[in-house]
Amino acid sequence: MNLRRLWAIVIKELRQLRRDRVTLVMIVGLPVVQLLLFGYAINFTLRGLDAGIADQAGTADSRALVMDMLNTGLVAPVATVQTPDQLMGMLRRGRISVGIVIPPDFERRRIDGRQVAQILVDGTDTAVQNAASQLAQTPLDSARPDTRAPATSTPPETAIAVVSFYNPQRSSAVNIVPGLIGVILTMTMVLFTAIAIVRERERGNMELLIATPLTSTELMIGKVLPYIVIGLIQTSVVLALGVWLFDVPVRGSLADVYLSAALLIMANLAMGLLISTQARSQFQAMQVTFFVFLPSLLLSGFMFPFAGMPRPVQWFAEILPLTHFLRLVRGVMLRGASPGEVWPDLLALVAFTAAMLVLAISRFRKRLD
Rank of each mutant, 00 (worst) to 15 (best):
A270Q: 10
V229T: 13
I181H: 03
D112G: 05
R18S: 12
R251D: 05
S338T: 15
L30F: 03
P312H: 12
T217Q: 12
W315I: 15
F165E: 04
L232E: 13
F291Q: 03
T277L: 02
A267M: 07
R311L: 13
V177K: 08
T235L: 05
A354L: 15
P84Y: 10
T353D: 08
A60N: 01
A151D: 12
L320A: 07
G308T: 02
P156N: 11
G179I: 07
M206R: 09
V116T: 09
P321F: 00
T212R: 09
L37H: 03
L208W: 11
I53G: 04
L245D: 03
L368T: 11
A270L: 09
L232H: 14
V174S: 04
L30S: 08
Q278C: 11
A360N: 06
S171C: 01
F283Y: 12
M356A: 15
R170C: 01
T277W: 01
L320N: 05
A270Y: 11
A173Q: 13
G89E: 13
L35W: 13
L225M: 13
A117L: 08
E207L: 14
G99K: 00
F364R: 07
A355D: 04
P321V: 03
A41T: 03
K12R: 14
V174P: 05
E202Y: 09
P77Y: 06
T154M: 15
D61Y: 03
Q314E: 06
N175P: 02
V162D: 03
S171Y: 00
P305E: 09
V190D: 00
D61V: 10
R327G: 10
L140F: 09
S133N: 12
